[in-house]
């Protein structure tokens, strides 16, 4: 086999089919299931899901906290939302491209 794509394909088929077989095996070999309230540290389930459940949007908190300064730089210094700020970056880049190509392509080929 010389192609990593084929290897990935074989592996992922193995993983999905094998995972399905394993899951069915584990699930089926049970004597039966019953419906119960889960043990949530002694509190009822509804209390948790209705009130204390953390907002789904805060999943990234740990990473955002670690990358705080970088994230803040990207959010407030680059993506300001002000057209003038964007223009300054875009025009500087256009000028740089022009200068680079002129210097490298024409003046100093």
């Amino acid at each position: 086999m010389a192609d990593p794509g084929t290897l990935g394909l074989i592996f992922s088929i193995t993983v999905i089919v094998g995972g399905l077989i394993l899951a069915v095996f584990v699930a089926v070999t049970k004597k039966g299931v019953r419906e119960t309230e889960p043990y949530l540290c002694g509190e009822s389930e509804t209390d948790f899901t209705d009130s204390v459940s953390p907002p789904a949007t805060e999943v990234q908190w740990g990473l955002e906290k670690t990358l705080d300064s970088w994230v803040r730089f990207v959010r407030t210094k680059i993506h300001t939302g002000v057209l003038d700020d964007w223009w300054s970056l875009m025009i500087v880049w256009a000028a740089l491209l022009l200068i680079m190509s002129l210097v490298r392509g024409w003046a100093w080929p």
């Binding site: 540290c41 389930e45 948790f48 953390p54 789904a56 999943v59 740990g62 990473l63």
Partner: peptide, 15 residues
């Protein structure tokens, strides 16, 4: 899991 602790655990895992 429906409990917030599981979600917090997985969020930390994800980070």
């Amino acid at each position: 899991s429906p409990s917030p602790f599981g979600v917090v655990g997985s969020s930390r895992m994800l980070s």
